[in-house]
Design a protein around this nucleic acid. Structure first.
Lengths: 194, 194
DNA sequence: TAAATAAGATACAAAATGCACCTTATGAGC
DNA sequence: GCTCATAAGGTGCATTTTGTATCTTATTTA
């Protein structure tokens, strides 16, 4: 009989758990069910995680890692205007949310907050923070080079484009329209940044 | 032997559960433990909720109700300037977060998203949304009466002050300083609204 | 090819679940 | 006051889940 090992096994454990969560709210997950769904024995699970909560932490950091390590921001082109660049940025970032699902992102924040010393993913988180900061810095640099006036803002405020998308996806569940993205740029981002 | 009934009982069930959650991540809560902590029998719990998840939904909507039905916005005075009004608004709203805890708010959003048809608290949610909209409308009306110029913005954008506070509390766990609140007003809200 | 490693199976006591059924305190009605 | 309906609290039981220990076996690596 074939045996899955290492990452291959890990991924199918994650997949099975994820599959189960679509049916049951994950507060009620059991190792028994997961083992069954993943066609393995509980032993394999207990060896890795003391509780289902720990498993979930790993699932979401895994999903988040795949997300954060993506080259999404590398696709960003110079559209010729700050406005165009912002629209492109929001569109790409919203695309990430559409792809991975708002609930995963939501869960990531949730799990993060539950973890007293969110020890396991600080490195990941700071790395992703840096990527986000760089994306903004790049856009603003281009704008300045073009001669567009850019305000000096505090570091936290620079994250506003991402915060807007996040909030929109967390608080309001309706699909985010292109129109809304453009409104974010025209009503919020441009007045704030330029 | 004395028996707690109705709301009194309900509240002490909530309290006991809440107490337990400080020790255990709530993914691992059991009815057994809760019943023990609340000094009652499991029967009482099963009569009310099929799973711990359902209990949690009720807890957070209860907590949220106490929050949303509060008269926080009624305290808002006319400070004489839009800037002052915004600072006051953010301070009051941040105070709410400090009081009730960012994790409760986080959980509220979380539970809300898990619930496919968040059926139980839609009324509550729209009521609170209205309160928020009114608070903003009031501030803007005063500003206009004073002769300050106010931009015409889409309905969703009007929620920006609250979105900022929410995001700040969800994504970044450090305590929000007065300085940061003022920066939000000067760097974001004033450029957007006026 | 042998040894090390990790997956998977089995067993078992303890805890938790989900019900059914029973007892009893308490508030509402007369 | 007294009675009765209601809801709280208790008990018992079959089933599921947990946590752990122990053993077998597939697969990697040296």
């Amino acid at each position: 009989m074939e045996r899955r090992r290492g990452d291959e096994l890990l991924e199918s454990l994650f997949d099975a758990t994820f599959q189960l969560m679509k049916e049951t709210p994950h507060t009620n997950l059991t190792f028994q069910q997961i083992a069954e769904a993943a066609k393995t024995s509980r032993t394999v699970l207990y060896r890795r995680w003391p509780t289902t909560f720990d498993l979930l932490q790993d699932i979401y950091t895994y999903k988040a890692r795949k997300l954060f390590e993506g080259e999404y921001f590398d696709e960003l082109k110079d559209t010729g205007s700050l406005r165009g660049d912002f629209i492109q940025l929001l569109t790409v970032y919203q695309g990430v949310y559409d792809e991975i699902g708002a609930d995963v992102m939501n869960n990531y924040f949730y799990i993060r907050m539950q973890d007293p010393d969110h020890s396991r993913e600080t490195a990941l988180h700071t790395a992703s923070l840096e990527k986000h900061q760089q994306a903004i810095a790049h856009i603003l640099k281009n704008a300045k080079a073009r001669g567009e006036k850019i305000k000096k803002l505090s570091k936290v405020t620079l994250m506003l484009p991402f915060d807007l998308i996040r909030m929109e996806n967390m608080a309001r569940q309706a699909n985010i329209s292109k129109k809304r993205l453009i409104a974010m740029v025209d009503e919020v981002l441009l007045p704030v940044f330029s």
